[in-house]
Design a protein around this nucleic acid. Structure first.
Lengths: 189, 189
DNA sequence: AGATTATTCCGAGGCATCCTCGAGTTGTGT
DNA sequence: ACACAACTCGAGGATGCCTCGGAATAATCT
């Protein structure tokens, strides 16, 4: 794990892949607070090796999420071109909630990351609020809003709903989103 | 800590009070996941004594919250007699959010308690949804609702907002509540 | 007061993490 | 085959959870 441009050693690459695969499985099953020692064990690697590859839990999680995030942001870009700005906004909210459902505890890490510039997830959070801002702007222009809001407001709503989905149920989270979207959007004529 | 009706020994009572006082201070400062060993230390008591008085963290927390909860439920009862059902509902939501702001992490324990009958906080959660149900019913009768909802929906909203207040800021939580209440309530004529 | 007893307290100890770091091992380029 | 950088290892210090048997002590009895 040095910074140089040289290609990493073969065993290092193998271990890294193995760690990521097991981490994904364990986080899915047990949430983002699962034991890192357990992940290392399952990957057939000593704990020190895990830390050599990923300095902390968030770094591991961040790597795991990078791919998924790309897909999510692509979806966001698509939605910016969709005919109905209101429907696009709603779809975006649901997409992020579904994304956050991957690992229990993810909502908390996202909410944390939006303020904390040092967080590995910060960049993703910024992008999410950014997409929210644009979707809002488009909806406003189309006269689809009953009241105003910002990308951060949307971000908060998405995270809150994702958290409710973890704590209570996905249905309950859905009802919360419906409520808030009813408050935000103009009645569909 | 026996079950009998006999009055507890003086040292036991003293320790119990001291533990509760320190626990409150520490939970306020560090949240509901603070170290119990630290609390015992600050209370000048061994860890075993803490566990003799409170079998687990939730029991300690539950005792700490009992008083505060009474006040909250009294407030809820008051609100049921208030002239404007819509204002009462909004006030209730804000009251619970303020209540949950006491300790970081409380929102999560409440959300957990509503389903888990074994939780020391379960009873309180049930009462909260109950009050929500009644406030909703009154608002519905008064024609103050744009759409329907249940006490559990209100409970979810309150918890989500309390959690956002912890993770992001009280202002952000306020905006979420505004959004959702706009969705729930009829426009004030 | 002194003895008796039920109650309460203590804290070492087993277990599970987290994370670090020096020493040992191994892939790779020459 | 050699040498060295790159990588891996896992013991070990720190913290926290919770339990349990023996010590201490407040309350009660004589």
């Amino acid at each position: 794990m040095t910074e140089s441009g040289r290609r990493p050693r073969a065993d290092a690459r193998r271990n890294r892949e193995r760690l990521l695969a097991e981490a994904d499985a364990v986080f899915r099953a047990q949430g983002t607070n699962a034991s890192l020692e357990g992940i290392a064990r399952r990957a057939g690697v000593a704990i020190g090796t895990l830390y050599a590859h990923f300095p902390n839990r968030r770094a591991l999680l961040g790597t795991l999420l990078r791919q998924r995030n790309e897909a999510l942001f692509d979806r966001g870009a698509d939605l910016l071109d969709q005919p109905s700005p209101a429907a696009a906004l709603t779809a975006w909210v649901h997409a992020v909630i579904a994304h956050a459902a991957a690992y229990q505890g993810l909502a908390a890490m996202l909410a944390e990351g939006v303020d904390d510039e040092a967080s590995e997830l910060h960049q993703s959070c910024v992008q999410m609020t950014d997409i929210g801002d644009r979707l809002i702007a488009r909806a406003r222009q189309a006269g689809a809003l009953r009241r105003d809001a910002t990308g951060v407001d949307i971000f908060a709503l998405m995270n809150a709903a994702a958290w409710i989905a973890e704590q209570m149920s996905a249905e309950q989270a859905g009802r919360l989103v419906d409520l808030a979207m009813d408050g935000l959007l103009a009645p569909t004529a």
